[in-house]
């Protein structure tokens, strides 16, 4: 019996060491090459991903990579897995997810903030025009009270002396579901981003339901906090050792800006290109969403102060866990050197 246990423990130790060593080997094998055969950018639904479509279509990054590909992510687990296993070079993600990953020890840096707020309260109820009108009502919010949309919304409500837990009901419902329920009349109010709002409005019109962007949460944020009407919502994250390759990151940022500018100036032409790479974001919805998407990319060194000021205000009501426990340190922001 004793001997059996000893043998087992010895075998176990060997297993542990083998697994540990192979882990180390993987980590050191990473190195930067002058020109990449393939640059991978992970993206999810949302206006922040628009510029990636023409960027791949025109092979804008040909000076640093033979080709650029887009991988899609949906859940935060996929995001974690992509980052910890270095599957991609860049990720377009909500700013809070980026901070969470950084604060949880993942090697990520914020390269830019691409979208400065695209949150609106959609309403099928004409009587709702202000935050006070939401009292006693139900509002569908993706991620419920604990997601980024929910925590921003709650902050604005609290600043307006509306108790988010007592004065209204926040329903946890993803945006695809709330969009279809607005159209069928099952719900009257939903918090939505772009291009989801444009999709919801178009879908509802088909069913003879008029849905409007009734409340601009960016404007409300500005009013309630005395800052500008902007919310750092989504940005480009650079993964792992790629942040040290400044030539790579700077070129990606430059091309991202150029393509974002093209999108904003050519909404009609942009729609079909975006739909080609993100089939769920329909061309017409993309086109209609642009006036509300605030797609104005600002690189990390320039937006750092604004993001930190936003977070300091945000944390007055939001749980620290929603950004991974604390304010991000300076190493979170890509500095370019």
């Amino acid at each position: 019996m004793r001997r059996e246990i000893k043998q087992l423990l010895a075998a176990l130790m060997i297993m542990v060491m083998a697994v540990g060593l192979s882990g180390c080997a993987q980590k050191t094998a990473q190195q930067t090459t002058p020109k990449l055969p393939e640059l991978k950018i992970a993206a999810s639904q949302g206006a922040g991903s628009y510029p990636l479509a023409p960027l791949v279509e025109n092979n804008s990054l040909q000076s640093i990579a033979d080709k650029t590909t887009i991988e899609s992510w949906v859940t935060s687990e996929q995001l974690s897995a992509m980052v910890t296993s270095n599957q991609v070079h860049f990720i377009m993600a909500p700013v809070t997810n980026a901070i969470m990953l950084h604060n949880k020890g993942a090697d990520v840096k914020l390269a830019n903030v691409a979208v400065w707020g695209m949150l609106y309260i959609l309403s099928a109820d004409d009587s709702v025009t202000s935050l006070a009108d939401l009292k006693g009502k139900q509002v569908a919010v993706t991620g419920g009270s604990s997601g980024y949309h929910g925590t921003v919304f709650r902050h604005i409500l609290i600043k307006n002396n509306i108790d988010p837990d007592k004065d209204l009901t926040i329903l946890n419902m993803d945006m695809a579901e709330s969009s279809s329920k607005l159209a069928t009349g099952e719900i009257k109010l939903a918090l939505s981003n772009e291009p989801n709002s444009s999709v919801a409005i178009a879908n509802s019109a088909k069913g003879n339901v008029t849905v409007k962007r009734a409340i601009d949460l960016q404007a409300e944020w500005g009013k309630a906090t005395g800052s500008s009407a902007r919310i750092p919502q989504a940005g480009l994250i650079v993964v792992g050792a790629n942040a040290k390759n400044t030539a790579l990151v700077n070129e990606v940022l430059k091309q991202f800006d150029t393509n974002a500018k093209w999108i904003n100036e050519n909404p009609a032409a942009a729609g079909p290109v975006v739909e080609k790479y993100f089939p769920k974001m329909r061309a017409s919805a993309v086109q209609q969403s642009l006036p509300f998407a605030r797609l104005e990319p600002v690189s990390s060194p320039q937006c750092k102060e604004e993001v930190n000021a936003f977070l300091a205000e945000y944390l007055k009501t939001a749980p620290p866990a929603s950004i991974g426990g604390k304010m991000p340190d300076d190493s979170f922001y890509y500095s370019g050197n």
Partner: peptide, 10 residues
């Protein structure tokens, strides 16, 4: 052993 071999996020 699994924890050592992978990231604390996983």
């Amino acid at each position: 052993a699994l924890a050592w071999a992978s990231h604390p996020l996983i």
